[in-house]
């Protein structure tokens, strides 16, 4: 098959950037989307041209490194999949595909399709952990946890930190990312002890980083490759109110 690409090219953060057209043919529908870009890049390299900068690592949907805005959707057309899990069989022969980076003030572009997401690390540093030193832990079975709580905590904890929620949000809010961590830890008895500080500090860091506020449009949930639920934002809101009224 053959596709026409419109790819965002931007030398660095200062460069205003522009779309550049490429035609890629001889594509096998079983290729992954990123393998299609590999083929194009190797062609550009052989011709002495600058390859398109994009990032990826595990290529199995778990590390959260890849993230392209494809035809107006984070991670492309497939629900519950990262960019690296999208295959060319999900596109039509002859289709025009527009590829952009995540666009958010808090995620400045490094080059072409690669953005700086270190803001997420700083949000976790603000409180996305349980304060336990190595060696302090009691026996693993000393704190039984209801299966349902453990399972909801797990669902929240499957966030891969890719930033699709931010890219999908009209406010470029990181609320789903923050909520997933607040809910993961807050639903477990070990995490209750620091619950109040956690929600306040993580939200304040989110603001400082330049992410927008949440207006509950639900775009984040719709585009999250791991299906992180809006329920977590409701949980975060409860935690926030509790934190504000309890001393």
């Amino acid at each position: 098959m053959k596709v026409y690409l419109k790819v965002w090219r931007q030398r660095n953060a200062q460069d205003p950037g522009r779309f550049v057209d490429y035609t890629v043919d001889g594509i096998n529908p079983d290729m992954s989307f990123l393998e299609m870009l590999d083929v194009l890049n190797n062609r550009l390299i052989s011709q002495g041209e600058d390859p398109i900068a994009f990032d990826s690592d595990c290529r199995e949907g778990i590390c959260g490194t890849c993230g392209l805005y494809i035809n107006g959707r984070p991670h492309g057309p497939l629900p519950r999949a990262t960019t690296c899990q999208v295959h060319m069989r999900h596109f039509k022969d002859g289709e025009t595909i527009v590829i952009e980076p995540w666009r958010a003030k808090a995620f400045p572009v490094i080059k072409d399709l690669v953005v700086d997401r270190s803001a997420f690390d700083r949000i976790i540093q603000a409180g996305g952990y349980i304060s336990v030193n190595t060696g302090q832990a009691p026996d693993g079975n000393a704190i039984p946890i209801p299966k349902e709580d453990a399972s909801k905590a797990f669902d929240a904890a499957t966030c891969i930190g890719c930033g699709a929620c931010v890219a999908a949000c009209k406010n470029a809010s990181a609320m789903l990312f923050v909520a997933a961590k607040v809910a993961h830890l807050g639903r477990l008895p070990q995490g209750r002890i620091e619950a109040r500080e956690r929600v306040l500090n993580m939200l304040s860091q989110m603001e400082k980083e330049g992410f927008g506020g949440c207006t509950n449009t639900g775009a984040c949930e719709a585009e999250c490759p791991k299906g992180i639920s809006l329920e977590n934002i409701a949980f975060l809101n409860r935690e926030f109110i509790k934190a504000k009224i309890s001393f």
Binding site: Y129, A137, G140, P144, I145, A150, Q190
Partner: peptide
Amino acid sequence: ANIIDQCVAQGVPFAREYGGYL
């Protein structure tokens, strides 16, 4: 065995039985 204890204390959501045990 210490590893499991440490991870549980950090909030690692291991699979559990209905009684709440690992």
